[in-house]
Design a protein around this nucleic acid. Structure first.
Lengths: 346, 346
DNA sequence: CCGCTATATTGAACCGTTTCAGTTCCCAAC
DNA sequence: GTTGGGAACTGAAACGGTTCAATATAGCGG
């Protein structure tokens, strides 16, 4: 395969000029550029990425370490459309800016940190995008300490010292509570995201304060820790329906969880959207196609992914821009929520 | 950051020994190994990936170029769970074998080939995994010509000369036809995958021959080209229901398409699984959670992804193994198919 | 005690870029 | 006609590994 030397020889110029053609074209005269252009075309020359990286310390790659559950059950980086939308946007925006996305799978939480250490240590990527932040996140501590460029989707306890994009989960949940309150629901259950996650903390805060604002009591038995899977929603809903004095509505961890909850209702002969109101989170594509269609808090995953890629590349290239962005989610009202039925509210 | 020379100096050995420690540890005496191990631990040393690649011509990365529609409408590399499952498996298996997965988004078909040329030309990856193969696929022609390691998910017209994993789509569709025929359906519609795709050809062959086998006529008006999206299914189904003599069942391009078709039924007051039978393809997770649950041809995406990664890495490392694998799909019968209703079969 | 083999270790050369100090050339200014 | 300065171009050195021919050392039989 052709090297920069082959091009130089064939074009009758020095390797320095060829390199300049590739990196600082306006240092060359138009004639020289033209000659080099022709030879490069002729030979179908491409720069050797590794050689370039070695010398320039840039890989033009950003890394992403998804947590993939081997057994396809409860995973924090949910194996669902939300992640896919996010990834698609990251990937598209990165590609537009000339960056590839390196994926390195972790199959358990314990594997994560070593993978980050390797990616950073081997200089496989110029920057990283994290997801599923915990309140205290060892990955973020590590990257901060190493001063490695990164951005997280989600905040942490100490978010002032790193770049992030996040959705105002508190507001999203508060809107959901408001919506249900307006429909007359008083016994509103809350199926929370998995404990360690920072988003669980924000959302809980939103739930708590919105309930207070609407003068609704938060009852311990109506608060359950769920997960981002159908199964978790199903289990949680069964639990709630087994209570002596069950709720009339539930706000769930995400849309998949909501689907599971709806399934539990169905199994007991209850109709979601009639006998019981369900609110999801995420607004994945199927939410609107579900039956009944799902009322849910919409997260703009494509925008989030695009912004995350943008930010981490800005950091890499040393551009000074806003690095801490919180987007507004939006409550999408559909058919899975309805006015409370007197009968069921014993 | 520490280099191999730092390690060598500090351990009192030559750089060659350190390199051997990393690549051929049994060339060293136990004592030397021990000393080097300690120093490496102490300094948290990792090999510089680019330097390694430059000399050894190996990147320990495999590439994947998903076709991502910017406007999130009809895409060949469908933005749905099927792809995600596949990707998760590729990524997991690759990681197990020490490979990362480099994603480079294409946002249009025209962009694809140039991206492959760059990835190969710049030696960004050691091998590639393709998806959504066309009957005559320029990407495959290019890679074959360059003798670049790759495997495709899906066959082509000339599949003898490249490695692939595929599902026996013909058999899957034939099974679906058999199932519907057994339920008494005679007017079976077929909503096909997009035209250029090789899988469309195989599946069509399966449909045609299975219909013949069951002595059912294939009527032109009951065959529609669809796509891998809900929208396409909805449109196609409306088309079919507008016919003077509509079908009683339909086999669709994939599960999303089936969901769209079911939605069209619903909009006309027809109940899928009662008034009309629908068969999907893929068996994504939501198929079983849908209402009514979807009868569909199950593709083992996780196995496919895992095998694809395995094969391409085998090719890269020069291992001689079976490189052309066809997996059996499996018809999963659920509630969206039922015996034909006499009334609707005018 | 010598030569021989096997094992362990060494370090220079090389991979293909980027970078930068240095050279050449040309023209404007005095 | 000399000088100074800028634009265009050159090529050696460096990036951090891997590889391999050469060397050192140890062990052993005769």
């Amino acid at each position: 395969m052709a090297t920069i030397r082959d091009i130089a020889r064939r074009a009758g110029v020095s390797i320095g000029s060829v390199s300049n053609y590739l990196n600082n074209p306006d240092m060359l005269s138009e004639e020289t550029r033209e000659v080099i252009r022709r030879v490069i075309d002729e030979l179908g020359y491409h720069r050797h990425a590794a050689a370039r990286s070695l010398k320039s310390n840039q890989t033009y790659r950003i890394g992403l370490v998804p947590l993939i559950s081997a057994e396809e059950n409860r995973s924090l980086a949910p194996s669902d459309n939300a992640f896919l939308e996010f990834l698609a946007a990251v990937n598209t925006t990165a590609a537009e800016l000339g960056y590839g996305v390196l994926l390195y799978a972790a199959t358990s939480e314990a594997e994560e940190l070593p993978i980050y250490e390797r990616l950073v240590g081997e200089r496989q990527v110029d920057g990283l995008i994290l997801m599923g932040t915990r309140a205290v996140d060892p990955r973020i501590e590590f990257l901060n300490e190493r001063q490695f460029p990164f951005v997280s989707f989600g905040r942490t306890q100490n978010s002032e010292d790193h770049a992030y994009v996040d959705v105002d989960g508190a507001k999203g949940i508060a809107d959901a509570v408001g919506h249900l309150a307006q429909l007359g629901h008083r016994r509103i259950a809350y199926i929370s995201p998995p404990g360690g996650l920072m988003c669980a903390i924000h959302r809980w805060e939103g739930f708590r304060s919105a309930m207070a604002e609407h003068n609704l009591p938060v009852e311990g038995e109506l608060v359950v820790e769920g997960g981002f899977t159908e199964e978790s929603g199903q289990i949680a809903m069964h639990l709630l329906l087994d209570l002596p004095h069950p709720p009339t509505a539930a706000i769930t961890a995400n849309d998949l969880c909501a689907f599971g909850a709806m399934r539990a209702l169905q199994m007991r002969g209850l109709a979601a959207g009639q006998d019981f109101s369900i609110v999801g989170f995420d607004d994945i594509r199927l939410a609107s196609h579900w039956y009944p269609s799902l009322t849910t808090v919409s997260q703009p995953f494509r925008r989030i992914g695009s912004i995350a890629a943008q930010i981490v590349i800005d950091i890499i290239t040393g551009k000074e821009v806003e690095h801490q962005i919180i987007l507004e989610p939006k409550l999408i009202v559909r058919r899975s929520t309805a006015p409370v039925k007197e009968s069921s509210d014993v």
